[in-house]
Design a protein around this nucleic acid. Structure first.
Length: 561
RNA sequence: UGGGGGAUCUGCUAACGGUAGGCGAGGUGACUCUGGAUCACCGGGUCCAGGUUCGAAUCCUGGUCCCCCAGCCA
């Protein structure tokens, strides 16, 4: 197995070496979220990394909830996280763990440290601890309580557990080095007193272990070989190693750090995502504009495209910002292959074909997916009155415009060539209807006289159309780096959501299932909204627009004046 | 300022002393019943200065710039 693996990134190289040297026989990784919020695209990278590594090297990957701070954790988050990891297509099998299940063992390991003279109970207040810690350039000072006897520490720690002291009055600290240039080694806090109900252990504990103590031990208890985390934990590694060194754990996992994923036009900090929700810029964690897995899923992104994306962005130690265009490319590529094509008119303009017999209906054959013939074809009704897209007609078209204009011809996709004979306006001068004629000889792509009709537009037969709501989603922010400005909310894209209430859909869309996805020809990929769509009131979300080279040409023309 | 990290096309990433390559973005063209898709082509990069070497993105020395750390959060 390991022979066949080509080292792809630096972590794979490390693992390959460890397997070859015999340091490990199999590898075990883990994804260790804290259940205090929803997972986002950055987590997806970590999930893919850990699970894929395990898959690739024939090992396993654990899902472990790092739930040592009861303040903000909840079962709702646990459930959402499990749902999201599964949705991405990963399976932790029986390897589901909770740090809170280790509380008793963790307590014993703390006692072991005390007995070795490597941990002590400190009575300093939080403010005093901060003062004693020193600064980046000045060493800290030792706490006056640092040299309590082992017996006294044992007694005090037991009584902390028994609830004899008020919250915040005492902590257990590691006895390392108050003069260390690494702040994390200046006698880090191991346990704090917090009388908060834990969503799993309830009232059982009033002391809770800190991350730096819990994480290495949890890893060791589970036999994790490679403990992969993000860059900001780099200078926690000496502490991670110190804990494992000084406590009787069965093995010695190795911490490896990689750069977290940042995406342009996106924020991912939990605080910022929460602010967007609380201040009403979005509707919730699963708003399709959110970079959360739940939001992305509702938006219509496929798990396959997310995994492909995570594969493509790579793994390195350099801080970086990935262009969101990369993500958009990945969904387009996936959906192009898989999404059935349909016709839908978003901003309808009625067209009456004057020389088409009244009452006549033809069933035209339309291909479901030109990329995949096995998806077959369907019939779409055609009649005297159809809707076309408002933007597919211009009274006074610019150079290069291929669509409909007075006296000009265009092909109705899978149907006939029509010519615009007349434009009907209301008293305000708005175009309300087009009168056209059709050429009966042009069905099926032909023009018997060989004339070229460049423009092909989509349409929906008016009497057969199904009405529906379409939500056009776009990037949430107007600036590339909303994560770097204080007032990021001032840069929320006012056009990140445009709701179109009366769109005309081809009849085959009437029974579209929630969650199913389609390409609306010439427009983009859309999915039936999982939350708001109802059989009698369809709601489609735009996942991503198709690449639009005409829009690009237009934009350039405008920029050039 | 002490410590820990990092610098390769416009963005992400590969090259493990031996031809700087891939993907995305951008541009041009071909093709097309989606101005979609596809295909082809085009630009464009090793942070700087020295050194070692037949040969350096890679090793050494010295700089520069960027990120992280002073929670009883993770």
């Amino acid at each position: 197995m390991s022979e066949a693996v080509q080292p792809g990134n630096f972590i794979e190289s490390i693992i390959t070496d460890d397997l070859r040297s015999g340091k490990h026989k199999e590898i075990v990784t883990r994804f260790p979220p804290e259940p205090n919020g929803y997972l986002h695209i950055g987590h997806a990278k970590a999930i893919c990394l850990n699970f894929t590594l395990a898959e690739k090297f024939g090992g396993r990957c654990h899902l472990r909830f790092d739930d040592t701070d009861p303040e903000k954790e909840s079962m709702e988050y646990v459930e959402s996280i499990m749902r999201d990891v599964k949705w991405l297509g990963f399976d932790w099998g029986k390897h589901l763990y909770f740090a809170s299940d280790y509380f008793e063992q963790l307590y014993e390991f703390a006692v072991e440290l005390i007995k070795k003279g490597l941990a002590y109970v400190d009575d300093l207040s939080p403010e005093e601890i901060r003062e004693y810690r020193g600064t980046l350039t000045e060493p800290g000072r030792e706490s006056p309580y640092r040299n309590r006897s082992v017996e006294e520490n044992l007694d005090l720690f037991q009584r902390m557990r028994d609830g004899e002291f008020p919250d915040g009055s005492k902590v257990l600290r590691a006895k390392i080095d108050m003069a260390s240039p690494n702040m994390n080694m200046r006698d880090p806090v191991l346990y704090r007193i917090k009388r908060v109900n834990h969503y799993r252990t309830g009232e059982k504990w009033c002391i809770y272990p800190m991350y730096d103590f819990t994480h290495p031990i949890s890893d060791a208890l589970e036999g994790i070989t490679h403990s992969i985390c993000t860059l900001e934990f780099e200078d926690h590694r000496p502490l991670y190693d110190w804990v494992l060194e000084n406590v009787s754990v069965p093995c010695r996992p190795q911490q490896i750090e990689f750069a977290r994923l940042n995406l342009s036009y996106t924020v991912t900090s939990k605080r910022k995502l929460l602010k967007l929700i609380e201040d009403g810029y979005v509707t919730g964690w699963d708003d399709p504009r959110m970079p959360t897995i739940a939001g992305i899923r509702r938006r219509g992104y496929t798990p396959e495209s997310i995994r492909d994306f995570c594969e493509r962005v790579g793994v390195a130690k350099k801080n970086s910002v990935v262009d969101i265009a990369m993500l958009e490319h990945c969904v387009r590529e996936d959906l192009n292959r898989r999404a059935p094509r349909r016709m839908a008119v978003l901003r309808p303009l009625k067209v009456v074909i004057e020389n088409y017999p009244e009452g006549k209906v033809e069933e035209l054959e339309a291909i479901n997916n030109p990329e995949d013939p096995s998806m077959g074809s369907r019939k779409v009704p055609f009649s005297r009155e159809v809707y076309i897209e408002q933007e597919d007609f211009m009274e006074d078209p610019p150079k290069g415009y291929r669509r409909l204009a007075p006296g000009r011809e265009v092909r109705l996709r899978y149907g006939y060539v029509i010519r615009c004979e007349d434009v009907i306006k209301d008293e305000d001068g708005n175009i309300v209807e087009l009168r056209c004629t059709y050429d009966p000889e042009t069905l099926g792509g032909a023009t018997p006289d060989g004339r070229k009709v460049r423009g092909i537009i989509h349409w929906v037969s008016a009497p057969h159309a199904v009405s529906g709501e379409v939500r056009l989603y776009d990037r949430l922010f107007t600036i590339e780096n909303p994560g770097e400005v204080e007032d990021f909310w001032n840069y929320v894209n006012p056009e990140s959501l445009i709701v179109l209430k009366d769109c005309k859909l081809e009849p085959s869309l009437a029974d579209a299932e929630p969650g199913s996805f389609y390409q609306f020809e010439r427009q983009g990929y859309f999915c039936v909204d999982l939350v708001d769509s109802k059989p009698d009131r369809l709601v489609f979300n735009r996942t991503v627009a198709l690449k639009d080279s005409w829009a690009k040409i237009q934009q350039r023309q405008q920029e050039q004046g």
